[in-house]
Design a protein around this nucleic acid. Structure first.
Lengths: 148, 148
DNA sequence: ACTAAATAATTCGATATCGAACAATAGGAG
DNA sequence: CTCCTATTGTTCGATATCGAATTATTTAGT
């Protein structure tokens, strides 16, 4: 990397960070029951991939300390959005299952986001977003693979 | 927004979130003295804009609750990276000043990031990043302005 | 000048995050 | 089987985040 390119990459990640913060705040403001992005992310993952995952699997999927996930799962369970049952295949681990309420909450959260997205979509048409998304997806996969 | 475009925007912000998390973790791993991105962001802001800002100004610049900033500033002050002095123009507020150590720590942090960026730059040349950066900057400004 | 409303920062309490240490179980080597 | 190591999840302690209430000061209205 040429030295004069450093600010470019720096600024890139900087903008990513700010957009993430703004987007996150906007979405969390619409979440009911004091739930946060971490909770939503887990529920969404269980629907996208499949429920019945072990906590460790989920933590790895998000590159997240498993100790943080324990706490997030506890919050979801307390609110009745997931159920944790023993794993018959391995006495050490558990399996995480969505409840009806969990599935419904996730759907409602996504519907709520639509309102936010519509505002963005007014100014940024799908083609532009899709264009940038290609790079972002590629970059995410690269960074994910580059983790030691 | 057409309904079938919703997943596109959703996925876009999702990738932003993951990249942010991966980038953040990689950078924080290099920060000395247990400092976090929040600390770096404040120091960097004081250099970019100008030090002597009031806490409220800084909090607004980051769309961040001022109560969180109080805590971040306390951490920076405890480590001698900033100094807070009374504001002669307004008895309610204070002004935040960088110390030599604060400035040096920020420079070292950026230098450390260079190593991470170089890996990314191998696979993603400046032109591609600059291209995406244009959209991101525009989007960030838009979202920033759209805040109520 | 006096009072009321607005503003700056902090304190408080509840929750989140995360590294280190831990208990329980699994699995492999002998 | 027994011992040793690896793996899974939790607990614990320290710090971070953030909304609500609080204190001090300024500004606006009269």
């Amino acid at each position: 990397m040429r030295n004069e390119d450093l600010p470019l990459y720096f600024q890139f990640f900087n903008e990513i960070g700010i957009i993430n913060q703004l987007g996150r705040a906007a979405m969390e403001a619409r979440f009911s029951d004091g739930l946060l992005m971490s909770h939503f992310t887990v529920l969404n993952h269980l629907i996208r991939v499949q429920d019945g995952q072990t906590p460790l699997k989920i933590a790895q999927a998000f590159q997240m300390p498993k100790t943080s996930l324990t706490h997030t799962l506890a919050g979801l369970e307390k609110r009745g959005l997931i159920e944790m049952r023993a794993n018959p295949d391995d006495g050490r681990s558990k399996r995480v299952w969505l409840t009806e309420a969990g599935s419904a909450w996730r759907d409602a959260a996504i519907a709520g986001m639509g309102t936010e997205f519509a505002v963005v979509a007014q100014a940024f048409p799908p083609e532009r977003i899709a264009d940038a998304l290609r790079l972002l997806t590629e970059l995410r996969k690269f960074m994910d693979a580059a983790r030691d």
